[in-house]
């Protein structure tokens, strides 16, 4: 896949963040090019989720800069909302709107934010639901769906906003084993279509197969980054070697 060297879609420069005495992000520098699939791995507590969440300001940063398509991330108000509309986010716990049907979950963003006419939004939503394979559930409410189905709806909800990039914060960690693959399959397809993606995950097979680049984080720092084959076969740092060793048993 050709990776453009022009303006990166996402860029983090010298990002630092503290939770009280805890230094959770230390001088993070990272850029994600258009169409790139970046997989972030690392032990729990390494700051990988926090980093992912800073990109659409669900977490604030103490210092440094975050740029989306070259413009600094706005701090508040309509500008911030408009930017978030362009960056999709998929959560570990799905977070579908509990009081809305599946269809309404997907159409809410287009109708309320993009002001798409309802019929058009619904047609597009049904098309997206068909793509992720849950169109037959459109009239149900989230609690009636399995975790795997809910997560696929969550992906469709993000896609409905026609995002320029998508963030995945451990999208399969809350799923039963038999449902992980149905969600990963949707993500693989997205990657193949050229979506710019930042994926925080523990799914090493996914990382190896789909990632253009693997970023390994520990203690709030980016310890190393490399192509998946290089990283998994020849890790440079001791931390990465230890980490890969520790998950081998699984």
């Amino acid at each position: 896949m050709a990776i453009e060297t022009a303006t990166p879609v996402i860029e983090l420069r010298h990002v630092d963040k503290h939770y009280g005495p805890l230094h959770v992000l230390r001088d993070i520098n990272l850029s994600v090019a258009k169409g790139e699939v970046l997989v972030v791995i690392g032990p729990s507590g390494s700051g990988k989720s926090t980093m992912c969440r800073t990109i659409n300001r669900l977490e604030t940063i103490d210092s440094g800069e975050i740029l989306i398509e070259g413009t600094p991330l706005p701090q508040e108000g309509k500008e911030l909302a408009a930017l978030r509309a362009k960056v999709g986010m998929v959560f570990q716990s799905f977070n579908l709107f509990a009081h809305k049907t599946i269809l309404q979950n997907v159409t809410m963003g287009p109708i309320e934010v993009l002001h798409t006419p309802r019929e058009q939004a619904e047609a597009e939503a049904m098309e997206l639901l068909r793509r992720v394979g849950v169109d037959s559930q459109a009239a149900k409410v989230p609690a009636q769906l399995s975790g795997g189905q809910q997560q696929r709806v969550a992906i469709a909800r993000s896609l409905a906003m026609h995002p320029t990039a998508m963030l995945f914060d451990e999208p399969t960690s809350a799923l039963d084993p038999e449902m992980i693959n149905e969600v990963l399959a949707v993500m693989v397809e997205l990657a193949q279509e050229g979506m710019t993606m930042v994926v925080v995950t523990h799914e090493m097979n996914f990382a190896r197969r789909v990632a253009n680049r693997v970023v390994f984080m520990a203690d709030g720092q980016i310890v190393e980054q490399n192509s998946p084959d290089e990283f998994f076969d020849h890790p440079q740092s001791q931390r990465a070697k230890d980490f890969l060793e520790s998950i081998k048993g699984h």
Binding site: R57, T60, P74, Q75, E76, G77
Partner: peptide
């Protein structure tokens, strides 16, 4: 982290300069 923030606070973003 966000898990133990009360809903009262979770309704609001960390404020930017204008909001402050």
């Amino acid at each position: 982290m966000s898990a133990n923030v009360s809903m009262r606070d979770a309704l609001y973003e960390a404020p930017g300069p204008k909001t402050r």
